[in-house]
C-alpha cells in the first residue's frame, strides 16, 4: 500500500487518502463553457508521472498535490494545497 507523506501529518497509508482529480482538470467557474468541458472531460492519462490532487480524508482532511508515477506508484513530490494554517 502506498505511503503518502502528508505535509501536515507525515507518512500515512494510502487508505487514509482519496484521489480527487488531475491538477489540469480543475474547472474554474469563470472559464468559458467549452474550455470548462474540455478540462472536465479529457485527461492525458499518462503511463508515467502526473500531477494529481488528493485529500487526506481520513486524517487532517487537508488537500495535497502529488506528482505520482502511475506505473510504479512512486510519489515524486507532495505539496499542500488550499488554505494554509498560519505559523
Amino acid at each position: 500500500m502506498m505511503l503518502i507523506h502528508c505535509p501536515h501529518c507525515g507518512p500515512r497509508a494510502q487508505e487514509e487518502f482519496t484521489y480527487e482529480r488531475t491538477r489540469d482538470s480543475v474547472v474554474q467557474l469563470d472559464q468559458a463553457p467549452d474550455v470548462a468541458m474540455a478540462a472536465l472531460y479529457s485527461r492525458t492519462n499518462p503511463r508515467g508521472e502526473e500531477n494529481e490532487i488528493w485529500r487526506h480524508t481520513l486524517g487532517c482532511r487537508g488537500w495535497l498535490e502529488l506528482r505520482r508515477d502511475r506505473m510504479s506508484h512512486a510519489i515524486v513530490a507532495v505539496r499542500p494545497l488550499g488554505v494554509q494554517v498560519l505559523p
Binding site: M1, Y19, E52, W54, R70
Partner: peptide, 13 residues
C-alpha cells in the same frame, strides 16, 4: 481502488 494506475497492482485494504 479509486485512483489512476497502470501498475496492475492493487492495494490490500
Amino acid at each position: 481502488d479509486g485512483f489512476p494506475s497502470y501498475a496492475q497492482r492493487g492495494q490490500p485494504v
